[in-house]
C-alpha cells in the first residue's frame, strides 16, 4: 500500500532492533562458522551476546525517542561485544543517533539519512573501502538502493530494495580477497568464503525491511 507519510518512531526502532537480535540469534551458528573459516570464530557468539544485552536494556526502562534508543543500543554494543564488530556496530548506531537528532519520529528521508550516517561512521572507524570484503560491502549498496528508491510512494518497497541490495552485496563478498581485519592475514586463502560481517549486516537491513515498511 502506498504510504508516503510513514514515520519511524521509537516503537519502530525498538521493533527493528528486536528483529535484528532475533535474526542474529537464529543465525549465530552460521555466523560463527563463516568466521571460523577466515577469522577467529566468534562473530556469531559476540554479536549475539551484545544483542542480548541490548534486549535487556530495551526490556528495562528504555529512554524515549528514536535517537535515545539508537544511542543506548550503540553504547551497549560497544561495551559488551568487544573486538572490531563491537566498535563497528556500536559506531553505526551512535552515528545514527546523532543524525536522527531530537525528534519523536523520523520521516523516510530522515531515516535514510540517519542510516547513511551510520554507514559513514563505520567507514570512518574501519577505513574500509568497497571490495575489501567487509560489512561495508553489504551496507553501501543498501543505503544507495534506499536513497534511489526514496522519492517514490512505497517506503516498504524501498526498504525491500535496500535489503535485496545488501543480500547481493553480501553474496558478492565470496570471491573477494580480504583486505581488512584478521581475514586479511590469510591473503588469497580468504577467497571463496562469504564474509561474516557482510552477512550480519545484511541481516540488519533485512530486519529493517521486515519491521519498518
Amino acid at each position: 500500500m502506498a504510504d508516503s507519510t510513514a514515520t519511524i518512531d521509537a516503537a519502530g526502532i525498538d521493533r527493528w532492533i528486536r528483529a535484528f537480535a532475533t535474526a542474529v540469534a537464529e543465525n549465530e551458528g552460521m555466523l560463527t562458522r563463516l568466521d571460523s573459516a577466515i577469522g577467529d570464530a566468534d562473530h556469531g557468539s559476540n554479536l549475539a551476546r551484545g544483542l542480548k544485552a541490548v534486549l535487556a536494556k530495551l526490556d528495562g526502562s528504555p529512554p524515549e525517542g528514536p535517537a535515545a534508543l539508537l544511542k543506548q543500543t550503540g553504547m551497549t554494543l560497544v561495551s559488551s561485544v568487544g573486538g572490531a564488530s563491537g566498535a563497528l556496530y556500536g559506531t553505526f548506531f551512535l552515528r545514527m543517533a546523532t543524525a536522527a537528532g531530537a525528534t519523536d519520529a523520523l520521516d523516510q528521508a530522515g531515516f535514510a539519512a540517519a542510516l547513511r550516517a551510520g554507514v559513514d561512521g563505520i567507514v570512518a572507524r574501519g577505513k574500509a573501502e568497497a571490495g575489501d570484503k567487509t560489512m561495508y560491502d553489504a551496507l553501501a549498496p543498501a543505503v544507495d538502493a534506499l536513497d534511489a528508491a526514496l522519492g517514490g510512494e512505497d517506503f516498504a518497497g524501498a526498504l525491500r530494495a535496500a535489503a535485496a541490495a545488501a543480500a547481493a552485496g553480501r553474496d558478492a563478498t565470496t570471491p573477494l580477497q580480504a583486505r581488512k581485519g584478521r581475514a586479511s592475514y590469510l591473503g588469497e586463502r580468504s577467497i571463496g568464503h562469504q564474509d561474516p560481517g557482510a552477512t550480519s549486516a545484511a541481516l540488519l537491513i533485512a530486519a529493517a525491511a521486515d519491521t519498518l515498511g
Binding site: G82, G83, A84, G86, A87, R125, G126, K180, G181, R182
Partner: peptide
C-alpha cells in the same frame, strides 16, 4: 596493531 584493539582504543 589488530583491528579490534585499534578501533576500541580510538573510541
Amino acid at each position: 596493531n589488530y583491528t579490534g584493539d585499534v578501533m576500541n582504543f580510538d573510541m
